[in-house]
Amino acid sequence: MTRAHATPLHIAPAVGCMGKAPNAEYIALKDVTFSYPGQHPVLTDFNLTVARGELLVIVGESGCGKTTALNLIAGFESAQKGTVSIDGEPITGPGPDRIVVFQGDRSLLGWLTALHNIEFGLKLAGMSRQESRRRALEMLDRVGLAGQGDKYPHELSGGMKQRIQLARALVSLQRVLLMDEPFAAVDALTRTTLQDQLLSLLANADATVVFITHDIAEAVTLADRVIVMRRGAVRHTLEVELPRPRTRGSAEFASFYDKVERALRQP
């Protein structure tokens, strides 16, 4: 289940390294109840833990609460009841220790070039121009977009834009990466390429990832563990014990695919 760590992708102290929580509960949602104003609760007494360094994939139908759970971890929303914590510390708001990759391209800054978009988090943190540029160029290359750095988002294809988002997230990555259906708006062929690229980029990083998707194949390709949510609760958990790199056509892959699909279809 562990992935090989060589040299970490980058070295940055995790925010809140005191208060160590047990590794298996690095991110923890305990008895969380949440509803949007004036609406029925999306999550009721919801419990979820994410282990340090694991790649957790959440699947579920629309409205099951998976995005809400992610938003709570990200700190964009606060739970009305229960606790949401990282490394034992309660989460009070968004922060660079939990970087988010969004679906679609709306989080890209259209007035900046691709390279400047990637540098964005580094500039916020006050990194020098040369250093941030160097790192951004390196990451641009690693996501396969060398030479495209001076283009603006509207000049790039959907797949390229998602790669810019990935590059932006990874170049500023500290400990946790949250991804909300990042490849949903991309065509199927590009999607598989992006999945492979993501895995290779994460291979040397000491990162905990929470990934939301509708796509079962995507879940089986990426996940250390898949959880299936329905109507605001975790209904199934599956450890995906496939060695990496995973072959999408193999029999073992297919069997895990089946398991997830059946879990999704169960009432």
Partner: peptide
Amino acid sequence: MTARLSMRTRRSP
């Protein structure tokens, strides 16, 4: 530290 703007972290109009 990081900003906590109470408005507009929601998607509702």
